[in-house]
């Protein structure tokens, strides 16, 4: 690990010095600093900077940036009205990690691409312009949607997939004031600038996440992975589905493990909306979702897996 200065922050403020880096739970940043993938010159410890409460907000809830994943998933209001969020968080990491992981840090966690995490490889995200060893390499856990020739990494988190399906909003504070960013627009596609995971500007900090009023319907999180606990998703689906008179009245679907961001596809949702559920309809929805999917060898299986995961979730959500 490279040497750094350390400073405790009493509140959340915009970052004003280049080379300064926020540390919250530390579970992702310290991991990457040990690997020399991250080398901040100064750490600003925000773990006691407040913003550690869940409060009522415009008919919904506001989750402070420093609320831990464990506290969020244990909150009675989250469990009752946003079970999808509790389930997605509980499907991630381990109890020990969730006790440290924070809402803001979880959103900003970096990819688990193994080339990104090893400094003796070429990686455009870690070292812009060096190339991408994943394209021809071991790319089993890589993206099939929205990739570029510069980067095929996935956003690895679970919580943000649920937040995307729940239409949540990220609240950020910068030198210019507060900005509200829908979670669906917080992470970005790699394009020719994979070094940037999300749209946060250098001076901006996340202060919280807001959830809109609870909506009716079944909420499901299905995560498929190599072992049944303590592993990242190969494919995951977060769904909020409401039936009326045997038809799908409302549907929100977000996917993890498929892209550089939680993936939401309006066309897939439009195909399902207003229709009576059937295997043929679910197939049609999967066709739309995966029309532009591209495997790179190791991850070809994700195309079939995503189709089956979608069918399983839609079946579960629409059966009596």
């Amino acid at each position: 690990m490279r040497p750094f200065d350390y400073r405790r922050m009493a509140d959340l403020q915009p970052v004003d010095q280049p080379g300064d880096r926020l540390i919250a739970g530390g579970t992702n940043l310290l991991d990457l600093m040990k690997l020399d993938v991250e080398a901040p010159r100064r750490l600003l410890d925000i773990s006691r900077a407040g913003q550690d409460r869940i409060t009522e907000h415009e008919g919904g809830l506001r989750i402070g940036a420093l609320v831990t994943n464990a506290d969020c998933a244990a909150d009675p209001r989250i469990r009752a009205d946003y079970p999808l969020l509790a389930k997605a968080i509980l499907a991630g990491a381990s109890p020990q990690l969730r006790n440290k992981a924070t809402t803001g840090g979880n959103l900003c966690q970096r990819t688990r691409c193994q080339y990104f995490m090893a400094t003796d490889t070429r990686c455009n995200k870690r070292q812009p312009g060096s190339g991408c060893d994943a394209l021809q390499g071991v790319n089993r856990n890589h993206a099939i949607l929205g990739t570029s020739e510069a980067c095929i990494a996935t956003y690895p988190g679970d919580m943000a997939v649920a937040l995307t399906a729940l239409d949540a909003t990220v609240e950020v504070l910068g030198q210019g004031g507060t900005r509200l960013i829908p979670v669906a627009e917080f992470h970005r596609l790699p394009g020719d600038d994979p070094a940037r995971d999300n749209v946060l500007r250098d001076d901006e900090v996340i202060t919280g996440v807001t959830l809109p009023e609870p909506v009716a319907g079944r909420q499901i999180y299905r995560k498929i992975r190599d072992r049944s606990s303590y592993a990242f998703a190969l494919v995951s689906v977060g769904a909020v589905i409401k039936l009326r008179e045997d038809r799908i009245a409302r549907v929100a679907l977000a996917f993890g493990g498929l892209a550089h961001k939680p993936w939401r596809d309006p066309q897939t949702e439009a195909i399902l909306t207003g229709q009576p559920p059937s295997p043929a309809l679910f197939d049609q929805a999967a066709d739309a979702l995966l029309a532009k999917a591209k495997g790179r060898g190791g991850n070809d299986f994700k195309i079939a897996l995503a189709r089956r995961a979608l069918a399983a979730v839609l079946t579960e959500a629409t059966e009596e």
Binding site: I23, T27, D31, D45, S47, S94
Partner: peptide, 10 residues
């Protein structure tokens, strides 16, 4: 918590 992913100074 995992003490390996936490700084003593924190």
């Amino acid at each position: 918590i995992n003490s390996c992913l936490s700084l003593a100074i924190m």
